[in-house]
Amino acid sequence: MTAEEVIRIKNLYVSLAGTPVLEDINLTVYQGDFLGIIGPNGGGKSTLLRSILGLVKPDKGEISIAGGSVEKNHTLIGYVPQYAVFDRSFPIKVRDVVLMGRLAKRRGRFYSRQDYEQMERCLELVEMQELRNRPIGDLSGGERQRVLVARALVADPIILLLDEPTASVDSHFQATFYELLERLSKTMTIVLVSHDITAISTYVSTIACLNRTLHYQHNKELTVEMIEHGYNCPVELIAHGIPHRVLHAHDGVVG
């Protein structure tokens, strides 16, 4: 049985403002994968996600999504950005922000009943149904991040790209959120960027490490090489707190 290739990246090079940010990235994500990407600040994680979405144009290389081009198939992706900058005084309610996720699929001038039901369901998933009528500018940072997760889910994507979605949410929601992702990963392909190595290693099915170039073996093993490559520092500084079952040296378990 071979799973379908959902994201396929071949020899990808990306530079921003003249500086190389990603070099020779090769990555295949299969249907049902739950890929965690770790790496230092400035390692290019956000840029990789943005390339997959077509928001950044690569210098060289190919990206295909579900067998088609980025231009054609990027709408199959749900995306939670690392930073959402918007105007606090913008007169719009939480529910309308979530509904926007379905705008491109909408037929005609109005949202259908199904659109509304889906919006309610996604707000419940992120436990924000009570704040549905609040103006978005009145929410806290963590609450806003939850709304963005709902907005990403509302259009039934087959792929979910999450860029540090738990950076400002409390520990209660973090636990709920990772459980939600675990459930979603049964029907969706998920790529999660996070600095929370413990959480990543508990929930994801495969791990990659990105620091301009990508280390990825399509398994859950986080090797000493990967960490040293990724963070340019001795393993002991990073390894603290990582369950041993995921942290392997080339020939055995570290620690």
Binding site: L53, T75, P81, M100, L103
Partner: peptide, 21 residues
Amino acid sequence: LFHDQFTMVAFDEEFAQVIGI
């Protein structure tokens, strides 16, 4: 005809692009 599209593009241009508006 296009109020919702205008609002979305005004609110979050990047996300509008992502979902194909």
